[in-house]
């Protein structure tokens, strides 16, 4: 081995690094292929999803009290919904579309779970949530659970959707409480959809409309290039 050889190898490694930095990703054909694979990954994930497989639950001591705030806007810009004026609107393939007040929502039987929130960026945090299984709510309002999706529209302009198997998963909650308190405004009062089998961004907050549909609902971050199914 000689010095020139080392220099040359250093140079070729540098070239390799430069290749990664180019704008290949923004090429239209490349985008189409990558999005196509992402749609394929949706189908793979739906196929391996097992409704009986529960997300791990942790001891209550593991739950973080001061849960990480996360949104594309600051906590001071988070919507503050009125407990008296708020209504949950129902739409789509639901038999009883009467809207719900906070009081009515809170009156439903609740369970608690200590589960882990996993963010697409790589951080994770265990929290304690209280709420009603979404499954119970869907059955109570006469939702067509043979439909393929449940969609959500939110007070902060967010929108998301779940595949029906995930919506009917026993651990998917309408979470009314966090850390044994009524869900604070910055975490999504009056409720957030807590889905321990999905990445964090599939857990919409401030839900104002819930609908059942056979058309895949769009997602705020999915429209920005993230994978739709995003199961974990």
């Amino acid at each position: 081995m000689n010095r020139r050889g080392l220099l040359r190898s250093g140079f070729s490694l540098g070239t390799l690094g430069l290749l990664g930095g180019c704008n290949l990703t923004d090429n239209e054909t490349v985008q189409e292929v990558l999005t196509g694979v992402s749609r394929f990954n949706d189908r793979v994930q739906a196929a391996i999803f097992r409704q009986g497989a529960l997300a791990p639950e942790f001891p209550e001591a593991a739950a973080v009290k001061d849960f990480r705030y996360n949104a594309w806007y600051g906590p001071d810009q988070a919507p503050v919904l009125s407990a008296t004026d708020y209504r949950l609107n129902l739409a789509g393939k639901i038999a009883n579309k009467q809207s719900w007040t906070v009081e009515q929502l809170h009156a439903m039987p609740q369970v608690s779970q200590v589960t882990r929130h996993v963010c697409v960026e790589g951080w994770s945090m265990i929290g304690k949530w209280n709420g009603t299984p979404l499954r119970e709510f869907l059955l109570r309002v006469g939702a067509d659970t043979t439909a393929r999706y449940v969609g959500f529209e939110c007070a902060d302009g967010y929108y998301e959707g779940l595949d029906m198997p995930t919506a009917m998963h026993p651990q998917t909650l309408m979470a009314f409480g966090l850390s044994d308190q009524v869900l604070p405004a910055k975490y999504g009062f009056p409720f957030k959809i807590r889905v321990p089998t999905k990445l964090g961004f599939k857990n919409p907050k401030y839900v104002t409309t819930l609908f059942v549909t056979n058309q895949e609902p769009r997602g705020f971050w999915t429209d920005r290039g993230y994978n739709w199914f995003s199961g974990i």
Partner: peptide
Amino acid sequence: TLGGDVGAALARNNDPGVAGALLWHFA
């Protein structure tokens, strides 16, 4: 790194190009 132009992704989606990187990674 790989995942498209960061400035463009920030302007378009307020996302620092992570979506593009994830698409590459999971393909």
